[in-house]
Design a protein around this nucleic acid. Structure first.
Lengths: 343, 343
DNA sequence: CAATCCGATGGTAGCGCTGTCAATAATTGT
DNA sequence: ACAATTATTGACAGCGCTACCATCGGATTG
């Protein structure tokens, strides 16, 4: 006794095939590999799909094919503006493709990351996007055993698990400090919060640039493991002033801190840039609007998200990039806060 | 000829059942309804699961049970800070539960929302969280036919599709304006960007508060459909000054605009709050840190996300709330930008 | 003590789709 | 013209799990 339609409204692939006058498997191929069908059948199936309003059952597809059409995304934070832009790129790029995004948040914990990767592996994603290059050995093993394209984002390094898209935080930071030095500043403070690996590399860029000018001094460095806020920028700056009153510039590992420093300067009547130059990192939108406008390092976050998805999808579908590592670079946006006085 | 293990390493529920010495269906019940098992079997299955490192196949589960363990979340923006907090609450709450989050972004398009809801419906989510109460008639129909708990978030209203958690934007805005009026201001400008439904209701709160004081004047209102930025705050404020030079306070529909106004005031040497009071909306972190600190309306975004997930999961599992609408309220954070001069 | 009920367990039969491979039709080379 | 090849298409047998019902011993009841 053959199976009847489970419910009056239930459209399965079988129904589509019947209406189109083909076998179910041919109808199935219509979705997976339409070029394999003759034009006449393709059109017949196509119109049957439309007529019946057929929607594939993803669970059945996944079960039968041992694959899903899910791209996993592992990021360390949902509140950080930086990731909002990356995510926007990711979601924008995934729309229109057959793939859907599964987002997971590590909250900057590498153990949580391990756990999440294990979870992802169990669900056999079609591709994976992970943040950074500092996975634990265990996480790396999981990634390598994942058997799907993997793209590491936000930064680049020498040994990609698979593919990478990002930029060099070290170089970006080094460039920012070089710029500040060129303006004639000598005592350049460093303000850092939540020293994640990328922030750490920004510190190294700062340190090496300062050392190259024989100006590095540990007293100029103030960091904390506390998450970044604007308020924290002011607090750290106050700390810095206590330790080293005679500073003439501050480099902040992100723009929130930089804004906090600017506000603290306003509170203390420190004239920017006359008494103090300020440089941030990321170039969030408000930096251009502040008074004085704030210098920052622009990074291509939206593009990073877009490229990450494109690279993963291309790899899934067999179009591997010639070059596995894509450097999206950065751009120093010089603004009033680090420019010579004009007034 | 019985089925063999597909691959040497493949652990299916059958393997677990075999090791535990129970039937597969009993092992299955261990996950779905552990109380139904006798304690001895429960322990046996439990240790078998652990010993084999069994991970359920979600696709098979979904196919056989006609359900998924996915909670769909529909929001209008990924870049808006407001949603970052809500999302954080949502993801935090979903962790530890069996449910996973599927995020979709409408970009403030109600047509896109319709399309996404249709997509979700096809995948039979266990629950759904959608933003706002202004769905199209079609979207509402889809939601009602969804056959799963639905929570509308960000605002509250009279006719929930199912459940709601949010607050009254009208009341919050009305309260903010009342506060400004109490400070003795009379010409209060309104600055609005991307007039989505919630921003529209904030406008209505402003309008009615002003009308109640017989102070409403359309010339005081400047809005645009452009997305919000800090820079835009300055631009809109400049427009406002052109139209109505003699204003003594500005209410901004969000904090980014408020910050932009503050910067524009600094540029124009307008003293805040002496010459102009500024009030924002959302109470983003930087508001307390600005110079002068900026008054805003605090909303419980993180809690909103948490409650939304909890309510949906509870409803999925049969624990419907007594009251379907949850008002999380708001709090006016009065700061220097709207306080009487102290200096 | 039979009738009834209930909690615990198991057997059967798919869920809707696709991998594999065989079968057929169309095309080509010699 | 005939074998060999290549494009299309189809049949079959599950993927791993759970819904549905059947079963079975033991507790409850009058």
């Amino acid at each position: 006794m053959g199976r009847k339609q489970t419910k009056s409204g239930k459209i399965r692939l079988t129904e589509v095939a019947k209406l189109a006058g083909v076998s179910p498997i041919t109808a199935s191929r219509f979705f997976r590999n339409p070029e394999a069908l003759s034009e006449s059948k393709r059109e017949r199936v196509d119109s049957a799909v439309k007529e019946l309003g057929y929607v594939p059952n993803l669970a059945a597809r996944a079960l039968a094919s041992h694959r899903t059409e899910v791209i996993g995304v592992v990021i360390p934070s949902l509140t950080n503006n930086v990731f909002a832009d990356v995510l926007r790129g990711i979601y924008d790029s995934s729309e229109g493709s057959r793939y859907s995004i599964q987002l997971a948040n590590t909250r900057y914990s590498i153990l949580q990351e391990e756990k999440l990767l294990r979870l992802f592996r169990a669900q056999k994603p079609a591709g994976l996007i992970v943040t950074g290059i500092n996975q634990t050995a265990e996480s790396r093993t999981i990634l390598e055993s994942m058997n799907c394209p993997v793209t590491q984002i936000m930064e680049i390094g020498d040994s990609p698990v698979d593919m990478m898209v990002g930029f060099s935080h070290y170089d970006a930071s080094f460039a920012a400090i070089s710029h500040i030095l060129e303006q004639g500043h000598r005592r350049i403070g460093f303000l850092g919060a939540r020293m994640d690996p990328r922030v750490q590399r920004r510190f190294e860029g700062y340190r090496d640039a300062m050392k190259a000018a024989s100006l590095f001094d540990p007293n100029l460095v103030v960091t904390t493991s506390v998450p970044t806020t604007v308020t924290l920028g002011g607090t750290l700056f106050a700390d810095l002033l206590t330790r080293a009153a005679e500073i003439d510039a501050v480099f902040c590992v992100n723009d929130d801190l930089a804004l906090g420093v600017l506000f603290e300067c306003q509170r203390r009547q420190i004239a920017v840039p006359r008494d103090l130059a300020i440089v941030g990192f990321n170039d969030l939108e408000f930096m251009a609007s502040a008074v004085p406008s704030l210098t920052s390092v622009r990074t291509n976050r939206y593009e990073m998200g877009r490229h990450a998805v494109t690279m993963v999808i291309d790899a899934i579908e067999g179009r591997r990039p010639r070059e596995p590592v894509l450097d999206l670079g950065f751009q120093l946006m010089v603004r009033e806060s680090s420019m010579p006085q004009t007034a």
